[in-house]
């Protein structure tokens, strides 16, 4: 997994609430057997019209908005457990998603792919969305070690599980950790069997 330490970038505002993983990556694109190339189809049915032409009113097609941070409405990533949603967002170039609330499975999937979900208050989100929309060159700085998000609407600290933070900073994933617990797992199985 790629390491995440700090990031400074402009951001893309997407204030829609309850963005589900079917919107992030529609089911018809889940037929691949590897992780590559999902970025081409991220938000497919919002980015493109039915005839395949570009939907110019969708924010990802508005060239004034650039950057590797997506600022999205409440309850981002609800619905299906498809990790393809996290792969698609990463592959498209996003490193951070900011929202006032994330669905559980999506949040875990994002963290397992070095994509940092940052939860902020609804009030802060609203201010941030307004600011970015008014001034697309607004820069956001994230320092994961210090758990700080700095923008011109204010500096805030954000929460992250300390274990997951360590994983992101070092580029570790859970597999090595779990395998290191092999003896304890074997002992657990033996004890359970004797119940």
């Amino acid at each position: 997994m790629e390491k995440f330490v700090t990031l400074t970038s402009t951001a893309i505002p997407l204030p829609t609430e309850n963005i589900d993983t079917d919107q992030i990556i529609p089911a018809r694109f889940l037929k691949a057997t590897d992780k590559q190339g999902f970025g081409d189809n991220v938000f497919r049915d919002w980015r493109f019209n039915k005839d395949g032409s570009t939907n110019s009113s969708f924010v990802l097609n508005d060239t004034s908005f650039q950057g590797s941070i997506l600022v999205a409405g409440n309850n981002f990533g609800c619905g299906s457990s498809r990790e393809h949603a996290a792969w698609a967002l990463s592959d498209y170039g996003f490193k951070v998603i900011i929202s006032s609330f994330f669905a559980d499975i999506f949040k875990g999937n994002a963290l397992n792919n070095g994509l940092l979900p940052i939860q902020v208050s609804e009030e802060y989100l609203k201010k941030l969305l307004t600011k970015i929309t008014e001034n697309p060159s607004t820069e956001l700085t994230i320092n994961l070690e210090q758990q700080i998000l700095k923008t011109s609407v204010g500096e805030i600290s954000f929460e992250i599980d300390s274990y997951k933070k360590m994983c992101l900073i070092n580029g570790y994933d859970d597999i090595d950790f779990l395998i290191s617990k092999k003896e304890k797992i074997n002992a657990f199985e033996i004890a359970q069997h004797q119940l």
């Binding site: 457990s81 498809r82 990790e83 393809h84 996290a86 559980d104 499975i105 875990g108 999937n109 397992n112 792919n113 599980d161 274990y163 994933d173 859970d174 597999i175 950790f177 779990l178 395998i179 617990k181 092999k182 797992i185």
Partner: peptide, 22 residues
């Protein structure tokens, strides 16, 4: 409960998952 593909790999590798208790 449902899991992502990284977690499918974790269970494959260890028959366990790292989880915060909900």
């Amino acid at each position: 409960f449902g899991i992502g593909t990284s977690q499918v790999a974790q269970v494959f590798a260890s028959q366990c998952l790292l989880m915060q208790k909900p």
